[in-house]
């Protein structure tokens, strides 16, 4: 069973909830697909047993000894990435999208496309099973592809170690990385919080998730921070036919656990939040097993 935890924007407590579920499932394969800002390794301190290089796109590099400053590349580049620095043609790395047109048009073959090879994929064991996480180097592209790679690795490990459950901590946003993270999973859990932007994000996310077909659940985190908005989100979910798996109160114990590099289940197993999380996990697993695929989502307009 593959479960993906996603949240639209960051800061809803998605990673903390993923960490909690990971400690309930023993053993688990935990795939940290939040590749731009991987965090779970800080909590679980896995033993990296394998490292892989990930090529995150390419960028142009000019050989000044070959370049005659003809400026043809500058004419063709659509990203303002080629500029003159003291009369010498140069590449602006922040602007370069790696399309390679400049290296194609250069009559002197002075421009080479170089792989961006600073990103890494790690896998290893941790106290609740196996863990895969990645570090995308700043400005490198293809985080969707890296997410796909993390998941592939997770499936391979699950098979190899005979572990049944794969838990995916998803990337933020609604773009290509999120789609890579939820394609083909059995359950999607969306973590949201009671604010206007929380509701908007939830709606945007559902448009993406809808079409994918897995059973979808919503966790309303910190619901007591804004009860009226929490009710609005609940009624939106009801209207859209999305099940609310549970609601969690705002509790300082959660950040406290994180500071001590523990999940809330490990840090305060008898706290209200921990008990609620256990209940939520049971709800999700029991229901999903019973009526997998019957649980279609439907997006309606906001009220």
């Amino acid at each position: 069973m593959e479960t993906a935890i996603i949240s639209g924007k960051g800061g809803t407590g998605k990673s903390c909830i993923a960490a909690a579920f990971a400690s309930l499932l023993n053993p688990v394969v935990l795939a940290d697909c939040d590749v731009e800002t991987a965090n779970l390794f800080l909590l679980f301190d896995p033993l990296p047993e394998e490292t892989q290089v990930f090529i995150g796109g390419r960028s142009a590099h000019i050989d000044g000894t070959l370049c005659t400053n003809c400026g043809l590349c500058m004419e063709y580049c659509r990203y303002d990435a080629v500029y003159l620095s003291d009369g010498q043609v140069a590449i602006d790395e922040a602007n370069c999208e790696g399309c390679g047109l400049c290296s194609r048009v250069c009559p002197r073959q002075a421009i080479a496309m170089v792989d961006n090879d600073k990103s890494r994929l790690y896998s290893g064991s941790f106290r609740h099973g196996q863990m895969i996480y990645a570090r995308l180097a700043p400005g490198e592209d293809n985080s969707g592809k890296l997410v796909g790679l993390v998941r592939e690795k997770a499936s391979a490990l699950a098979l190899d170690k005979q572990i049944e459950d794969i838990l995916i901590d998803g990337p933020p946003g609604i773009g290509c990385p999120v789609m890579s993270a939820i394609t083909g999973v059995d359950r999607v859990v969306i973590v949201t919080e009671p604010s206007m932007s929380g509701l908007l994000d939830l709606q945007r996310l559902l448009e993406v998730v809808n079409g994918f077909g897995p059973s979808t659940w919503v966790i309303l985190n910190k619901h007591d921070l804004h009860p009226a908005m929490a009710r609005r989100i609940e009624s939106f979910c009801r209207k859209s036919g999305i099940a609310i798996a549970g609601k969690l109160p705002f509790d300082p114990l959660v950040p406290e656990a994180m500071v001590h590099c523990k999940s809330i289940i490990e840090w305060a197993p008898h706290s209200g939040v921990a008990r609620e999380l256990k209940k939520i996990w049971n709800t999700i697993t029991n229901q999903t097993d019973n009526n997998l695929w019957k649980h279609k989502t439907r997006v309606s307009t906001p009220d």
Binding site: K9, G10, E36, T37, A94, N95, E97, L136, P138, G139, E140, D141, S143, P172, G173
Partner: peptide, 13 residues
């Protein structure tokens, strides 16, 4: 924008 990918680098650059 969040993250440290191209959108972030473009903005801070």
């Amino acid at each position: 924008p969040p993250g440290i990918g191209c959108p972030f680098v473009q903005t801070v650059s």
